[in-house]
Computed example of a mutant assay.
Amino acid sequence: MNKQAILTLATLGAATAATAALDINLPGNSTQSVWSDMNSSTLTVGEGYNNFGTNTAGWSTPVSPNSGTATFDKVAGTGGYPGTDSIYNFDTPGSFFITENSPLANLETVVFQSDAVGGMMVAPTLSYNGGSQALAAINTFVVGGDFSGMGSNSTIFGYQWDLSGIVDPISDFTINWTSVVHNGNYEMQLNQGDTFQVVPEPSTYALMAGIACGALILMRRQRR
């Protein structure tokens, strides 16, 4: 393994389990938006968010991230309200969207992760520049999450889009999806990068990180 390959593994593949999502290290320039603590303690009913039993209307106030510039919102007519631990769907599916009006310059890839108990009824699609392209993710991954609720452990659902072939500058984009009934969405993460490279399968992260770490140690020993 040459030095360049070692550095590639160290920067691209060394993703480790983090709160709510895998720590995605994209090459080139990148940005990240994170939503954590999405529950009734932080999203107060009466400040734009529905309560149990009144979950058929859209939110009047989107959920701002703890860090980053994107926003998270609910489509009218579907489930989704701040529960004790998560954004929860009762007995109706929840349709949601993330909007980014200040995307990274020269955007080539987007990675979206949701740490939830439940799952996706309709997989996320991405549209850009005010359009309705509804692009499907070219790469998906599923890995164990960090939460436990409703008798089940959470799962991280990950989706990656390749936008490198889009000629026009991307001035905005929206990700839409529908989650199943009784879905609890605990935390989310959105990564943007200006250099496309497929995110490795989660099962290879530890192996790749270990290989990179061992190779770097070997390189240091050889310099002595």
Rank of each mutant, 00 (worst) to 15 (best):
P124F: 00
P124K: 05
P124Q: 01
T125P: 05
L126E: 00
L126M: 01
L126D: 01
Y128I: 08
Y128E: 05
Y128D: 04
N129F: 00
N129M: 04
G130L: 03
Q133C: 06
A134H: 13
A134E: 15
A134S: 15
L135Q: 06
L135H: 02
L135D: 00
A136P: 05
A136I: 07
A137S: 07
A137R: 06
A137T: 02
I138N: 15
I138H: 14
I138K: 14
N139C: 04
N139W: 00
T140W: 02
T140S: 12
F141C: 11
F141V: 08
V142Q: 13
V142D: 10
V143H: 10
V143N: 10
V143D: 09
G144K: 13
G144D: 12
G144W: 04
G144S: 13
G145V: 00
G145I: 02
G145E: 00
D146C: 10
D146E: 11
D146H: 08
F147C: 12
F147W: 12
S148Q: 11
S148Y: 11
M150K: 15
M150E: 14
M150D: 15
S152P: 01
S152A: 14
S152K: 13
N153Y: 07
N153F: 07
N153I: 06
S154R: 07
S154E: 00
T155A: 05
T155W: 01
I156T: 04
I156K: 11
I156S: 02
F157M: 10
F157A: 11
G158E: 01
G158M: 03
Y159A: 04
Y159K: 07
Y159L: 07
Q160S: 02
W161S: 08
D162P: 01
D162M: 04
D162E: 06
D162V: 01
D162N: 11
L163S: 05
S164K: 07
S164P: 04
S164D: 05
G165Q: 10
G165E: 07
I166R: 09
I166Y: 03
V167N: 15
V167G: 07
I170N: 05
S171D: 13
S171G: 12
D172L: 07
D172F: 06
D172Y: 02
D172H: 08
D172S: 15
F173A: 09
F173P: 06
F173R: 07
I175K: 10
W177V: 09
W177Q: 09
T178F: 04
T178H: 04
T178Y: 02
S179C: 13
V180I: 11
V181N: 15
H182N: 15
H182R: 15
N183C: 08
N183T: 13
N183H: 03
N183Y: 01
G184W: 06
Y186C: 08
Y186E: 10
E187V: 05
E187M: 11
M188N: 15
M188F: 13
M188T: 08
Q189H: 09
Q189D: 09
N191P: 00
N191I: 10
N191Q: 10
N191W: 13
Q192D: 06
Q192L: 13
G193N: 04
G193F: 02
